[in-house]
Amino acid sequence: MEGSIEWLLWLLTMVSVVTTVAIIAVLVSESVQFFTMEGHPEISPWSFLTGTVWSPLLGARPEFGVLPLVTGTVLVTAIAGLVAMPIGLLTAVYLSEYASAKTRTCLKTVLEILAGVPTVVYGFFALTFITPYLLQPLSESFGTYNAMGAGIAVGIMILPIVCSLSEDSLRAVPQSLRDGAYALGSTKFDVTAKVVVPAGLSGVIAAFLLALTRAIGETMIVALAAGGLAQLTANPSQQVQTMTAYMVQIFLGDAPANGIEYRSSYAVAMTLFAITFAMTGTGAIVLKRYREEYE
């Protein structure tokens, strides 16, 4: 009885291990099929990773250079980070250092609601509010679909992650450190900016990394609001296509199954998986190696 239960628990634990192995196996085998497809000798991992034109569905000869999709993703993620990191960190500082217990509970509820909102809702918000009412009045260059609107919406989506994880790590800084700094004649600003934030920095950076990873993998917002044109641009008023948005386009049935376009989505997925896996790994290392331990 005891032994069989332990064995059963072990078996269920292996589900998560098998999931990782299966994800990697599927992505690798399908990507290999993409790179070795007959009739397309021009496609190689090198041309895929360094090519600057992505036009799988248009033109006589499809081109598969993933860089426009990568820069599209990076542009949206950068905008999201610029929105979420300062606001999230300042809100976390306010929650942990300034707010009364009552205000704190109240604000935590607001953040929990924001965290629970499905991402497709943020996409809708970008399309029907951020772009027409905030961006288009500012400049006429913003189209219906643009990187800025999508980026801001992704930023709002990751704000609760930045905020609650940073706050956890700021609150974990022992009160004695603050008291010591006050005793030396510090103002609250000195205590916060020079003692508390540096002491909780590993947690804050891990929070940033986790939030940016979510932003890179975010799908529904960019599929709705960023547009569908893969282009190499840093102009946020233009439409861009991200890696995830391309996958949505393919799986929604724009391409015949088992064609070269269909297979290309697996190579894109592999790229996306590699990037996010590296980032979560880095986050875990940062948290482990640079954590300041206090009694």
Binding site: S16, V17, T19, T20, A22, I23, V26, L27, L210, T213, R214, I216, G217, E218, T219, T244, M247, V248, F251, Y266, A269, L272, F273, T276, F277, M279, T280, G281, G283, A284
Partner: peptide
Amino acid sequence: LNISNLSGVPSIVYGIL
């Protein structure tokens, strides 16, 4: 480590699996 990495995998990749 694998579990915390899995929690960072984009949900669309789970769709592919």
